[in-house]
Every structure is written in C-alpha cells, then in structure tokens.
C-alpha cells in the first residue's frame, strides 16, 4: 500500500520539518518505507513551500507525490494551488486561521484544525505545524502516535522537546475528537 502526503504553506512554518518528522516516524519507528522530498524558493522565510512524503510497505520507486491521499495545508495560497490535485476522497487538514476561503463542493474529507490558535495558547505560534501533525496522526492513523512523538522529539531544537510534545498531544486530542 502506497500513501502520498503533501504539506504546503510558506517558508518558516515548519512545512519541510513536518514532512521530515512524518517520514522519520514511518521509516525508523514505523517499520515502513518512507521518502520525503521538498520544494522551496530561495527565501528562508515567506516564500511558498512544499514538502512531500510517500509511505509504503513495498519499495518506493517514484519518490514524488502524484495524487496525494492526505494534504496538510497552512496557507490560502497553498490551498488554492494544491487542493485540486488531491485524490478523490482525500483527507485535507487545514488551519482555518490561515485558510479562510474554502470550496465546499469538492469530494474531499476536510478537517479544520485551529493549530495556530492552539499553538498561541501554548505560548509559541511556531509550533502550529506540530499541532497539525498531532491531528494528522489521530485522523489518518498513518503512523502510531508513539512513533510520531519520537520523530518530533528528535527533530526539534534541543530544549523545546517538552513544548513540542505538548503541542503534538493537543493536536492529537483535537483530531481524535473531530474524527469521533
């Protein structure tokens, strides 16, 4: 089984890091094959930014995402650009404070995760991507929360592990409630 996941937003939101965390969780602690690729402009901050992950039980030949099964979106620009490329019935996770104009007619399962607000309450907007990852883990079950937590802890700056794991937990709980 091959699952394609796309993360999109702008530079500085941790988009590439999010893809990396998911791929690490699947590959190192999830007993699957995983590959992460990325696309970004020359700017470190602010430019549009995309990260792609393919997770599969079998060997992964083509490493890029063609028709994503899961899309995590953190900007309006990214929504407009990528929502139409998602597979029919794909799972879309978006942050409503970043994406305000949403098309309702698409055959997609869309979940609104107020990640920026949750992150603000925890004290740092920059961890919104980890809140999103928590929700993504709960909703898609693509990796176990245990694997994901290990990947988060390994991929954040030293000394911020606790805060990031709290963000992950809040996102995970929010996602689980949404999923019902």
């Amino acid at each position: 089984m091959r699952t394609e996941i796309r993360f999109a937003g702008f530079g500085g939101q941790g988009i590439i890091r999010s893809g990396l965390m998911l791929a690490t969780a699947a590959c190192i602690w999830g007993d699957k094959n995983a590959v992460q690729t990325q696309s970004y402009g020359p700017e470190s901050r602010g430019g549009s930014c995309k990260s792609e992950v393919v997770i599969a039980d079998e060997e992964i030949d083509y490493p890029k995402v063609d028709e994503p099964d899961i899309v995590m979106i953190m900007s309006q620009e990214a929504y407009n650009k990528y929502v139409s490329t998602a597979k029919k019935g794909a799972t879309i996770l978006l942050d409503p404070s970043m994406v305000t104009e949403v098309e309702s007619s698409l055959h997609l399962k869309t979940y609104n995760i107020p990640a920026t607000k949750i992150a603000q309450k925890l004290g740092k907007t920059i961890i919104a991507n980890v809140v999103m990852l928590g929700a993504l883990t709960a909703i898609t079950k693509i990796v176990t929360p245990e694997a994901m937590k290990k990947a988060v802890a390994q991929n954040v700056p030293r000394g911020t592990e606790k805060l990031n794991l709290a963000a992950f937990k809040r996102g995970y709980e929010y996602g689980r409630q949404l999923k019902g």
Binding site: A23, T24, A34, V35, Q36, T37, I60
Partner: peptide
C-alpha cells in the same frame, strides 16, 4: 531532488 530527499 536526490540531494535534498530523505530516505533510509
């Protein structure tokens, strides 16, 4: 792509 791609 190969340079920036992450894999096992």
């Amino acid at each position: 792509i190969i340079g920036h791609m992450w894999e096992r």
